[in-house]
Simulated scan of single mutants.
Amino acid sequence: MEKLTLLIDFLFTHKLLLTLLIIVLISATKRLIIYKVRGDVSFLSDTQRKWISRTKNGTFTLLVILLFMLWQTEINKFALSVTAIAIAIVVASKEIILCFTGSIQRASSRSFVIGDWIEVGSLCGEVIEHNLMATVIQEIDLHHGQYHYTGKTATFPNSTFFTYPVKNLNFMKRYVYHNFTITVPKFVNLYPLFPSLTVQIEQHCEDFHEVAKRYNSIIEKHAGVDLPGSEPHIHVSSGATGEQHVHIMIFCPTERASHLEQSIREDFMLAYEKEFAC
């Protein structure tokens, strides 16, 4: 008992050594928990990512609290000594403060959780981690009409939430309103092609039409707005130099959007060639 008391007194006398010991123990505990959660799987599930993120945030918070309690006396003395330069410290730590408040804003608004698809500025991707300072996403190529992972990981500070709106695209993980445009250089009457093209699109979507209809209804109820619907939509607009743009929108499974687009483009081109062949 006396040896334990002497050891404790020694550690509290040598706070740097105690600080190092606390950091090592908490880091080792964090690594062990993450190792147990990750297991031997090649790809992490949303549940695993959530627990890994909670472990990292929890151990970091615990470390900060313990070190603050350990060095409280020194921190108080230091705070008194820097009162004259408090304004300079606030200015210098502006970005850090914004990151903390951005994290609080995200948590209070519940704008997204780990596993959601989000768009922030020009970045689109699936959230794989978030903490007090930054958010990490696995980038998805949405701006080019694709819905696959690019293999890039993007990390942005939470202060970004005060600069750009956060768009939650989570419903797009299963079904998506896929829009694409076909440009016709000649100014001809394209409307006679649309009835047969609509039938062909419906045939392409026949195997998932009922599921798409139900899922569309669920999204409408959740969002509280009247969405376009699960049926295909076709309309035409004209360009500045006389060309015509055929805009097509379908509601389909996200992983099949690109393939369906190519099939519909082929159907349109065959019908156009047959109708307006010279």
Rank of each mutant, 00 (worst) to 15 (best):
K173F: 02
L142H: 12
T83H: 00
Y272C: 09
V120Q: 07
R110F: 09
F194L: 13
N170W: 03
H222V: 08
G102M: 12
S111R: 03
W117K: 03
P253I: 08
K167F: 12
S111T: 01
L260V: 01
V136R: 13
H247D: 02
F187K: 14
E202N: 09
Q203K: 12
L70C: 02
D40N: 15
C124E: 09
N189K: 11
A84W: 04
E202I: 06
L6P: 00
A240P: 07
L63T: 02
S45N: 04
K173G: 03
D226P: 00
C205K: 09
I23D: 03
L227F: 01
H144E: 14
I104H: 08
V113I: 12
W51L: 15
A28C: 09
I33A: 12
L44S: 06
Y147V: 05
C124R: 13
I118S: 10
T163P: 02
L4T: 10
C124S: 15
H245W: 11
M69W: 07
H245I: 06
I219P: 00
T73P: 01
F251G: 02
W71D: 06
S27T: 13
N131D: 15
F268V: 09
A154T: 11
Y175Q: 01
A84L: 12
F187Y: 08
A84K: 13
L7P: 03
L193A: 02
E126G: 03
F171C: 06
A240C: 05
D116W: 07
H209P: 00
L16C: 04
N168R: 10
I114K: 03
L270V: 14
K94T: 14
H144C: 04
L227A: 04
T19F: 07
L142P: 01
I22G: 03
E255M: 10
G145Y: 00
N131W: 06
T29M: 15
E255K: 11
T47G: 05
A271R: 14
E202D: 05
H14D: 14
P232K: 08
N216Y: 11
V120E: 05
R265L: 04
N131M: 06
I33L: 13
W117S: 04
K36D: 08
H222R: 13
K152N: 09
L270R: 12
K77C: 00
L197I: 10
E210N: 11
S42W: 08
E206N: 07
H222Q: 15
K3N: 02
L11D: 03
T181A: 09
F171G: 00
A28W: 15
P253F: 01
